[in-house]
Design a protein around this nucleic acid. Structure first.
Lengths: 232, 232
DNA sequence: ACCTGAACACCGTTCAAGT
DNA sequence: ACCTGAACACCGTTCAAGT
């Protein structure tokens, strides 16, 4: 090959910037100090460059955040064929989404809030929908279970992030240590249930409910073969 | 009564500021132009005041956002006793959360991301947990179904916001009109399913799955009466 | 008590200029 | 092609000062 990528390390010691390098550093900043602490100037400083240099690689900050989202999606690789049934791989895929929330509590918000605009995001979607198809779901059923599963893991992911870390700002009342049995008996009673050591079981419970329904749906569909009448 | 609240309209024509008035104007700004367009100076201008005046009523912006969240929670009133069974009221309550996402697409993000720090938020939690108890769930079951339901409605709410509105920033590829059957056949096939007119049915489908599981859980619990052995 | 005005340390983004 | 430096129009927050 003619142009192999061996000529790194220009720019007095540091590698030349590229989109991936910048996005990776942005993810590090977000992991360390939170989404709102990511600024172009701060990111430039971390990279040993003026903040404005980043605009040579991304049109604006939104596009940079799409780049960070792409890195998150890379950590969500869909298990390839052969590693269990389609349903099992589907479950592992969505469990990976929750693991991502725990691993990147600050960056995770990008997943449920930013649209999947990039090619890599579309590729992820395509592989995921392939699992629904392989499991036996048509487009309409895939859409419905996809939104149920994706909604659950992203919403529950955000909730777990709140349960695990205390955000520094705002008013008091950390729920973990909350206790006011006089005014709020039911809230007080549920607090011990939401301790971190119970969160795995709570998440798995929700997944069980959804995957039980998916299995039942597939069995029912197999029983009546083809006869689906859309009802609007 | 001695000090009735009749003396509004000081400050040359405009009512004196208070927390509720400021939070309501903040919600209007967010509804109109998005969360990131809310600034203390902009909000002050809308209220006919310098932005710094707001700090007399809220310690910082985070506390102001808690105030906005309180207003959102007011729109989520839990149906009182007598209006159907506890399960029915539970379902209506979470349907109201989705309706809130559609009504306040920009402000809705506050619900799954901000902790419920205020007294009003705790009151909302308490009433909601009262519905789970009335339906027949103990603290542990309430925690599990609460996270499943709340996770689903907030995650699906965020997804619906994305499906309904196009965010102005970032890269192209609006999913609603996406079509690339060569490279992304499955994504292309699912796009028509996610059109706005199908979103009601998709949301209801997920709710059916969860509430069917809740009903089954209650029936099973009624059958075996009391015998729950924690397994951890 | 309630609000103003100036100040501080930041933002995202544009653009001409450097190499 | 890749980065710098200055500039513009903003931020959140603090604090002394006004009424």
């Amino acid at each position: 090959m003619a142009t192999s990528g061996r000529r790194t390390r220009t720019r007095n010691g540091r590698p030349l910037l590229d989109r991936r390098l910048i996005a990776a550093e942005a993810l590090r900043v977000i992991d360390a100090d939170g989404l709102e602490q990511l600024s172009m100037r701060r990111l430039g400083a971390e990279l040993g460059v003026e903040g404005m240099a980043i605009y040579h690689h991304f049109h604006n900050k939104a596009e940079l955040l799409d780049g960070v989202l792409e890195l998150l999606l890379e950590e969500l690789e869909v298990p390839p064929e052969g590693e269990g049934t389609a349903i099992e791989r589907l479950r592992r895929t969505f469990e990976a989404t929750r693991a991502l929330a725990i691993r990147h509590p600050h960056a995770f918000l990008l997943l449920p809030t930013r649209r999947f605009n990039t090619v890599r995001a579309l590729e992820y979607y395509e592989r995921l929908l392939g699992l629904f198809r392989d499991a036996g779901f048509d487009a309409r059923e895939s859409a419905r279970f996809f939104r149920l599963l994706a909604g659950y893991v992203s919403g529950a992911g955000l909730a777990e992030i709140g349960s695990r870390a205390q955000q520094p700002d705002a008013t008091p009342a950390k729920l973990e240590t909350f206790s006011d049995p006089e005014r709020f008996p039911l809230v007080t009673a549920i607090v011990p249930e939401l301790r971190v050591r119970n969160l795995d079981a709570i998440f798995a419970f929700g997944m069980d409910v959804i995957f039980d329904a998916m299995s039942a749906h597939l069995r029912a569909g197999a029983a009546r073969s083809t006869r689906t009448a859309p009802r609007l």
